[in-house]
Design a protein around this nucleic acid. Sequence first.
DNA 1: CCGAATCCAATCAGATACTG
DNA 2: CAGTATCTGATTGGATTCGG
Lengths: 136, 136
Amino acid sequence: MKLEHSDLPGHSDVTASPDALHNDCRGVATVLSRVGDKWSVLVIMMLGERPRRFNELKRMIGGISQRMLTLTLRGLERDGLVTRTVFPTVPPRVDYELTDLGRGLSTTVKELGEWAKQHLPDIEAARQSFDRRSAE
Amino acid sequence: MKLEHSDLPGHSDVTASPDALHNDCRGVATVLSRVGDKWSVLVIMMLGERPRRFNELKRMIGGISQRMLTLTLRGLERDGLVTRTVFPTVPPRVDYELTDLGRGLSTTVKELGEWAKQHLPDIEAARQSFDRRSAE
DNA sequence: CCGAATCCAATCAGATACTG
DNA sequence: CAGTATCTGATTGGATTCGG
């Protein structure tokens, strides 16, 4: 099977309600779902410092399957966030690097990450409290 | 079936790689996946202005099923981002409102949304270009 | 009006095996 | 090394029905 775009993560294109107001939201939503994608964010972070090779990324992330890494990288490449450069050497070598767009997103996401890290204790406390309440 | 937490969106708790570095990431990831969740963000936006009732939210969003709205609201409530107040009237009435935590997140997310809106043209252009290249 | 329970289809993600 | 193909179990989301 060839790789179809619908296979790529982060593109749960909304199908309903062709309202005027939502036209914006939906486009934005596809970008946000990139951010929400577990692997995409990690990959972007890993590429923040310098370009990386495929297996280098795989090792750094360390819980991702080959398939998912490929899919994630294709998605990022498709969105113009990452470039893919093939060196026709043997053994083959492929470098992935953030584009300017990708770097911009990474800094914005990093801010969100900061917020998350700061308030993580609050959220986890809320979760535990909620779970205790619904357990009884 | 009772509502289990694993049913709630935005909690694809990672199961692998108990590395030291990733302990942070994983907690943060659960927060980020909230942001990436299609419905959560919309709901947070809708509640930005003032508290809303269940069906009010349903109408405003206009493509969401009852089930998903319930699930989304439970998830937000569990994370301490939203409060749920039941008025024991007849017919029953339930108000949802952002907490301080939720408001904090909403402003941060709004910034990300701004970035997304600004660069949406670039991204969509990249997507089309990518799709054309892989079509040939 | 608000929501829980159940059923069911579609999508997703991991493991494995195979190529240039 | 850097993928692709395929199979399979797990998750997800919608529709519907029922209840306080």
